[in-house]
Amino acid sequence: MQLGFLVDLHLCMGCKGCEIACKVENEVPLSTWRLRVKYVDVGTFPETKRTFTPLRCNHCENAPCERICPVSALHYLDNGIVNIDKERCIGCAGCVMACPYGAIYIDPQTQTADKCTYCAHRVASSMMPACVVACPVQANIFGDLEDPTSNISKYIQVNQGGVQVRKPEKGTNPHHYYVGGGNVTLNPLASHRVNGHSLFNNITTLPVGGDH
């Protein structure tokens, strides 16, 4: 079994329901996120378009976080999920530095690394991840990539030319795919982050949750 995710960006409308569901399900502390939806506005007024991109751990086949972790706190499960053992983590933040997708954070409460686990605890009970359940338009498609009859496999087959991953040049082989993405949605260097130019807050960076 190789679990994977696919997000159809044609369907996503940026409601952030997945974000909230993830926060509640996993009790993600304030100022940190396992899953978030980024808005990028493209064009110049009045010819503008808004894009929405849900961003979470990519559960890479060749995960840099797993490789750099000195105590195997980050490890692969048999179903392909890259999981984290917070009791073993020493908080060196090597994984935060290694992840090319910015998907790992230091939990300010436990002082350990944390990230999306594809809701491994729910999957173990044969339930879908919380974000999949919450999505009102079924933009999140989750399933077994090795099963040709699974929804995700069928989706990939139908959209073959349009399936993309983030930063393929890193050689991480993500098990997280996007349909309908482009340079602006998948490449963080293709858009500007302007201080004070966010819709609901003026903060662009926060100190890493830590004691130093």
Binding site: K38, V40, G43, E47, H192, V194, H197, I203, T205, L206
Partner: peptide, 22 residues
């Protein structure tokens, strides 16, 4: 950046982590 078609600005996102290794 002056081309309308490629001018892209992040308009809503969480605050990103600052310096990790100080």
């Amino acid at each position: 950046e002056t081309l309308a078609a490629t001018n892209a600005v992040v308009t809503l996102d969480v605050a990103l982590p600052g310096i990790v290794w100080p």
